[in-house]
Design a protein around this nucleic acid. Structure first.
Length: 597
RNA sequence: GGUUCCAUAGCUCAACUGGAUAGAGCAAUAGCCUUCUAAGCUAUAGGUUGAAGGUUCGAGUCCUUCUGGAAUCACCA
C-alpha cells in the first residue's frame, strides 16, 4: 500500500508536468493489478480524461511512457482499455522478500506504550445451559479479532461478561429444586453445564404444560404466560435472590459453579481465553444506581406501577424498560453497570462487543441511553454484530433441544480427523502423544477455519449431517501445506542447503514465483485491512489464496532438486517465508499449524 | 404493521469497498504418485448476480420500487 501511495504522488506529478493541471486526489486511482493481467500496479485512467482531453488509450500511453522513464523500478507497462498496468522490476520484489525475511515481525505491529486500548467483549454466556455452535462462532470471532487488533498495534483486553443472574437462571434452579433429586455432576457423571441445562429444558416443558392447561381453562395466551404458577415461583425466586436470601444464594452458587467447571473445559478445548471476567451479579446493582440517578436528573421516566423506562421515541425508537415494577433488574440494567465499570477499569478508546445480530436493537439502545445519561465514552462503543448459525431446517433453539452442542461437535471433529488421518496413513510411526496432538490441531483447525472464513455479519448454514470438509478451502488444506513446507525445511537443513548468500543477479524468476512473492508481501496490507474492518474472514481468504499459490508453485517447480544452486536456495527461501506467513496468519485466526501431517 | 439486515453456480462461500472477462471449494466428469508429503495439482461442465427501473465513462456493489427470507420492536436474556 505504501508503494501505491508513492505511485499516486508520482502520477500527480506526471499529470502536472504533462497536462499542466493538478488533479483531484480521489480521481487518481492506483490499485493492484488483477491476477490475470501482466503488471503490478494499475492506474485507472477514465477519471483523468478531463485533464488529458484525450482517449483513455492515449492517456494511458502517455502516462505510462513518462512513468517508465522517470521511475527506476518501473521496467515497462501495458495498456488494456483504459487501464494502465505498470510492471515493476524483479529486483524490486526480491528486495521485498529480503526485507520480510529479516523482519521477525513481518506484517504485524505489536502494541507498545502509545497503543490505544481496545476492549473486546465476547462469549458472554448464560449460566443456565451448555455452549452451542452459535457460541463457538462468537468465541472464535472474538478471539480472532483480538489477535488481529493486537497485530495492528492495539492494546487489547479480552473480556467476558458472564450472565450469571436473572430470571433464566432461576428457571433452571427452580426446576432442579423441584425435580432434581439432588443430582450432581458427580452423581450423574454429567458435565456441570449439561446437568444445569437439562433442568432449564425441564422448566420450559413443565411451564408449557401449565400454559396450555390455563388456556384450556379459558385464559388467553398472554395471561396464561403471566399467571402460570411456575413462572410466578421463578419470579419470586429472583426477588429473593436480589434480597440475598441465603438459601437461594447458596443454591445459585452451587449450580453456577457446576456450570463454570463445564465452561472451563469447553473454553480450553477451543483454545480461547480472557484477560478479565465480569459477572452480571457484580455489576447489576451499579446499573440500578445509575438508573436511579438518571431518574433523579429527569433523563428517565417512571410509570404508575413503579417501572422505570427510557423514552427514546424522539430518536425514532421505542420506550425501553430499565427496571421492573418489582424493582428487579433486566438485561439492560446490568449492561449499563458493566460498561461503566469497564470504563473506570480501563479507560478504553474503543469497546467492541462481539454479540449476535439479534441484539442489534439492544446495542443501539444501550449506546443512546449511555449518551443520554451523560457518558462521553458511550460513543466508543461498537457492536460487532455477527450472523446466526442456522441448521438446514432453521434456527437452533436451546429450549427445544435442537442445538448443535459445542462439546459434541468438537468430539465429532476429533473422531473424523482421526479416521481420515488413519485412512491416509498419516499417523504411521508417530507416538500416541504425537497422534493426539496432531489430531487435535487438525480437528480444531477444520472447525475454526470453517466458521471464520465466512464474513461475520452474514448468517451461515451448518449441516450437522454433512461433516466439515478436510480438503479444498479448509483448515487442514492450509495446515497440510504448512507441514509440507516444514518437511522441505528439514530436508534442506539436513542437506546443508541454506536460504542465504544467494547471488541474486543470476536469478531468472518465473512469473509464478514473482506472483507468490507478491502474495507474501500483501500480508502486510491484509493485516491492516482485517483490523480496520474487524473481519477474520479477510485473513482466512488471504491465507487460502497464499496456500493455493504455493501449492501450484510446489507442483510446477523443483525446489531442493533444482540444479542451479542459487535458484535452489531462493526457492527454499521463498518456501520457508511462505510457511512463516501461513503460521502467522493462522495464529491471527487462533489456529495452530502442525510440523507434520 | 414499524425498523434493520440479507438474496451471487445444484450446495457452501469470494469479489481489494464503484473498475477489466463475476472467482474458489464441495458435489459431477476426465487426467497426474518408481521423482521435495496426492489432505495435493491440471482440465471439463455449471451464472440474465431475486425482478424492474435509475445514477455514470463503468453497477453484484450506490438510489427507488417490488418479490422472497431473517432479526427485532417483551416487566425474556
Amino acid at each position: 500500500m505504501k508503494y501505491a501511495l508513492y505511485l499516486k504522488e508520482k502520477v500527480i506529478e506526471t499529470i502536472i508536468n504533462i497536462y499542466d493541471t493538478k488533479p483531484e486526489l480521489k480521481l487518481v486511482q492506483v490499485q493492484h493489478t488483477r491476477k490475470d493481467f501482466v503488471g503490478d500496479y494499475t492506474l485507472v485512467t477514465f477519471p483523468l480524461l478531463r485533464y488529458s482531453k484525450k482517449s483513455p488509450e492515449q492517456t494511458a500511453e502517455e502516462l505510462g511512457k513518462y512513468l517508465t522513464e522517470h521511475i527506476d523500478e518501473i521496467t515497462g507497462f501495458n495498456v488494456i482499455k483504459g487501464f494502465l498496468n505498470l510492471e515493476l522490476s524483479q529486483d524490486y520484489w526480491l528486495n521485498k522478500l529480503n526485507e520480510a525475511w529479516d523482519d521477525e515481525y513481518f506484517g504485524i505491529r505489536l502494541p507498545n506504550k502509545e497503543s490505544k486500548t481496545i476492549l473486546v467483549e465476547y462469549s458472554s454466556p448464560n449460566t443456565n445451559k451448555p455452549l452451542h455452535l452459535g457460541h463457538i462462532r462468537n468465541n472464535l470471532i472474538g478471539y480472532s479479532i483480538s489477535k488481529i487488533l493486537e497485530a495492528n498495534n492495539k492494546n487489547v483486553i479480552k473480556t467476558n461478561i458472564v450472565n450469571d443472574r436473572g430470571i433464566h437462571i432461576c428457571k433452571s434452579m427452580l426446576a432442579w429444586q423441584k425435580w432434581g433429586n439432588n443430582e450432581t455432576p458427580k452423581s450423574t457423571g454429567l458435565k456441570g453445564d449439561f446437568l444445569v441445562g437439562k433442568y432449564y429444558i425441564k422448566f420450559d416443558q413443565e411451564y408449557k404444560k401449565e400454559i396450555s392447561k390455563l388456556i384450556s381453562q379459558g385464559k388467553n395466551k398472554k395471561e396464561a404466560e403471566q399467571d402460570a404458577p411456575l413462572i410466578k415461583e421463578a419470579r419470586e425466586m429472583l426477588k429473593k435472590w436480589e434480597e440475598a436470601d441465603k438459601k437461594v444464594i447458596s443454591l445459585w452458587q452451587k449450580m453456577n459453579n457446576w456450570v463454570y467447571e463445564g465452561f472451563d473445559i469447553t473454553y480450553e478445548k477451543l483454545g480461547v481465553d480472557f484477560d478479565k471476567i465480569y459477572y452480571e451479579s457484580d455489576t447489576y446493582k451499579l446499573g440500578k444506581s445509575i438508573i436511579m440517578d438518571g431518574l433523579k436528573n429527569g433523563k428517565l421516566i417512571i410509570k404508575k406501577d413503579g417501572s422505570i423506562w427510557a423514552d427514546l421515541t424522539e430518536k425514532g425508537l421505542d420506550e425501553k424498560i430499565l427496571l421492573r415494577s418489582d424493582g428487579t433488574s433486566v438485561y439492560m440494567t446490568q449492561d449499563i453497570g458493566t460498561a461503566y465499570i469497564r470504563y473506570k477499569d480501563f479507560k478504553f478508546d474503543e469497546h467492541i462487543y462481539v454479540v449476535g445480530n439479534e441484539q442489534d436493537y439492544h446495542f443501539q439502545v444501550l449506546k443512546i441511553i449511555l449518551q443520554e445519561l451523560g457518558y462521553p465514552w458511550a460513543r466508543c462503543i461498537h457492536h460487532l454484530s455477527y450472523g446466526m448459525v442456522e441448521l438446514p431446517e432453521g434456527k437452533m433453539k436451546s429450549r427445544e433441544g435442537t442445538v448443535v452442542d459445542a462439546d459434541d461437535l468438537i468430539e465429532n471433529m476429533l473422531t473424523t480427523a482421526k479416521n481420515i488421518s488413519e485412512e491416509l496413513g498419516k499417523l504411521d510411526g508417530l507416538s500416541d502423544k504425537e497422534i493426539d496432538k496432531t489430531i487435535n490441531i487438525i480437528a480444531l483447525g477444520a472447525l475454526k477455519y470453517f466458521l471464520l472464513k465466512i464474513d461475520p455479519k452474514k448468517n451461515m448454514v451448518f449441516n450437522p449431517k454433512e461433516s466439515i470438509d478436510f480438503s479444498g478451502n479448509t483448515g487442514p488444506f492450509i495446515q497440510y501445506t504448512y507441514a509440507r513446507i516444514q518437511s522441505l525445511a528439514r530436508k534442506g537443513k539436513s542437506k546443508k542447503i541454506e536460504a542465504v548468500n544467494i547471488n541474486e543477479k543470476n536469478l531468472k524468476l518465473d512469473l509464478k514465483e514473482i506472483q507468490l512473492l507478491k502474495t507474501i508481501y500483501h500480508f502486510t496490507n491484509m493485516v491492516k485491512e482485517a483490523g480496520e474492518t474487524h473481519n477474520p474472514a479477510v485473513v482466512a481468504n488471504y491465507v487460502y489464496e497464499l496456500v493455493k499459490e504455493f501449492n501450484q508453485f510446489y507442483h510446477d517447480f523443483n525446489i531442493l532438486k533444482e540444479e542451479d544452486m542459487d535458484l535452489r536456495k531462493f526457492r527454499l527461501k521463498l518456501s520457508i517465508m511462505t510457511g512463516r506467513v501461513i503460521k502467522q496468519a493462522m495464529a491471527l485466526l487462533g489456529i495452530d499449524v502442525p510440523e507434520k501431517m
